[in-house]
Nucleic acid binder design. Structure first.
Lengths: 334, 334
DNA sequence: ATAGAAAATGAGAGCGCTCCCATTATTGTT
DNA sequence: AACAATAATGGGAGCGCTCTCATTTTCTAT
């Protein structure tokens, strides 16, 4: 039913090849014929069949985005939506489309293996992988261009990340400088790089300041609001005067726990979060937090990936992006 | 580089056709050969080229999801993530993939026209369209299977929605029954069906209860937190004792405004929201709200769409899903 | 004008599948 | 055992593009 190159060729009195040239902006077409053909194309709103193009060229102009579900809380945390938004916007500008897979843990391996081999996409962005995730191996073996969101310790792995360790250190240091003495932390999942590195940053800040790292002031969470709430409840009995929390969602949970315990923020307990998701400027009190530019990071990842695809080079990419400490009221420095 | 059907055929000593039959679970294959071929396929982890399949069959097993950006606040509101999650999960079970397009208003028309004609997808789910959106026309003309999330007034349009009017009425009625006398509303965008219908439900509840609809107690928002905050500030001077708010994000904004004005919830002003997004059970006080099962709705939409695709029938689908009023503390009924 | 170079166009094969139809192998029936 | 009926398999064309190479047209310089 839809038109084909051949149809357009017939309608404009040239050959299929010439139409193809017009569509692909080949230089060797006389201006006259180019205009004539273009007009027919416009009139009929002709769109070339991308499956056929894909088959002929081996390229689809589609990238895949793989988000392992269960890694974080996709429903509540705006991290992924923002990332997707950034990726999508960049793809729009470079004439790519995005294929989205939210993989469920039990099928993950099989699904990824399929994605990598069925030639639907030219490359993939993989978000928040675990440090020991076996899909890294699949990725490398497949020879498909890819980039991870989140540092990965393996050699020769392409990734894009913020310097979580440095950022965690910076946030904690801020609390140290404000004079807090019993600084606690609520960590993310420690088998995710972001969780682990932010925790290391916390440790480093204390060590660099000759302050002890007290195990009872370290509470593990999993990046969800609920886990922040629970962790804070556990921490309260050890009387921290400040807490560095590995993401904003957990910080919201922690604030909820503090409120229920009738502890004031920041007078009784100061709080610093991580992510600067949009709601964080509107909490009571507004949350001091480490801003990572999530959408731009997604865009950058997509851009790098498309560069890899189009250049055909596979030299390892490791890109680190900046963070910024956004000081609001929850840390007590106003 | 990747293997083809022909390769597998050679390796297992049968013809390309037979391999194809094995892959597509054709019945007319002897059990012996089926097993033999399947083994080779497994050993080499062979994945058929979907572009070629697409070209040969005219079907891709991919559905598109189109989300017009700027319609709502994609970053903050978990509505879309949940919807996507539901769609994606269903697609996983039916062996479909999803292509995601976050269209930007200025390119929207052109982009959609491309999506509909370039044969990448077998059908599309379109989320939150405006009531007078011109892309409806494109959709209908294209003959591609589609389904809208959100009622649309035009005849012969496929959609899936909750009964927003009924739900709005139910929520407002709840406030009426609790004895509130000056019930206000903060509306969503009135050129979106959800915004309009929820507002109509509010009006209907008051009329059915012989209560006046006071224009000064109707404040327009646009579904964002910010707009809820602003709308509430405007409402305060008219002393409402209760407010029905067209979504939870705006309810958060409204609560923030009330808190700043030192008005207690629900003692001074009662609040009912709409959506029951996850955070709403954790606000202070917890939010009474209309629950719509967002992820299941996405799943249902994808399911319907795939049914349309596979059956080839194009009979108009109009599906209405249930809502439920979740009573918590913000309405003062405990 | 005319040869030679350069630019523009056309024809054909091929990308990896499916699907129809022809062919061969396997049954069951008397 | 011989034949028809049926099951299993193979071969070929075709899906709508691209891309190389051959051919035709146009241009430039003499």
């Amino acid at each position: 039913m839809p038109l084909t190159l051949e149809d357009i060729a017939r309608l404009s009195g040239v050959s299929r090849s010439t139409v193809s040239r017009v569509i692909n902006a080949d230089l060797n077409v006389k201006e006259d014929t180019r205009r004539k053909v273009q007009e027919i194309i416009n009139n009929f709103n002709f769109q070339p069949n991308l499956a056929a193009k894909r088959l002929a060229t081996g390229r689809s102009n589609v990238i895949g985005v793989i988000i392992p579900a269960g890694v974080s809380d996709l429903f509540t945390d705006p991290y992924f939506p923002q990332l997707l938004q950034g990726i999508s916007a960049l793809c729009n500008t470079r004439d790519y489309s995005v294929m989205l897979w939210l993989t469920e843990p039990e099928y993950e391996r099989r699904m990824i293996s399929r994605i990598l081999h069925n030639s639907l996409v030219d490359g993939v962005v993989v978000a928040s992988i675990l440090m020991d995730d076996p899909i890294i191996q699949l990725l490398i073996e497949s020879k498909m261009p890819y980039i991870l969101i989140g540092r990965h310790p393996t050699e020769d792995v392409n990734y894009l990340d913020v310097d979580n360790l440095q950022a965690g250190r910076k946030a904690t240091m801020h609390l140290v400088r404000l004079g807090y003495k019993r600084i606690a932390t609520i960590t993310g999942k420690k088998n995710q790089v972001a969780g682990y590195d932010r925790y290391l940053g916390y440790v480093k800040a204390l060590q660099d300041s000759d302050m002890p790292v007290r195990p009872e002031l370290v509470a593990d969470g999993d990046f969800t609001e609920e886990s922040g709430y629970n962790a804070m409840q556990r921490l309260i009995m050890y009387r921290p005067d400040a807490v560095f929390i590995a993401n904003d969602m957990m910080a919201y949970g922690a604030m909820r726990a503090l409120r229920e315990a009738n502890l004031r923020i920041p007078e009784d307990v100061a709080i610093v979060g991580f992510d600067d998701i949009p709601a964080s400027s509107k909490t009571v009190p507004p949350l001091t937090t480490v801003r990572q530019a999530i959408a731009p990071m997604g865009g950058k990842a997509a851009d790098l990936l498309i560069n890899m695809i189009e250049s055909g080079t596979m030299t390892t990419q490791k890109v680190i992006m900046d963070t910024e400490l956004v000081v609001r009221e929850s840390c007590g420095a106003s």
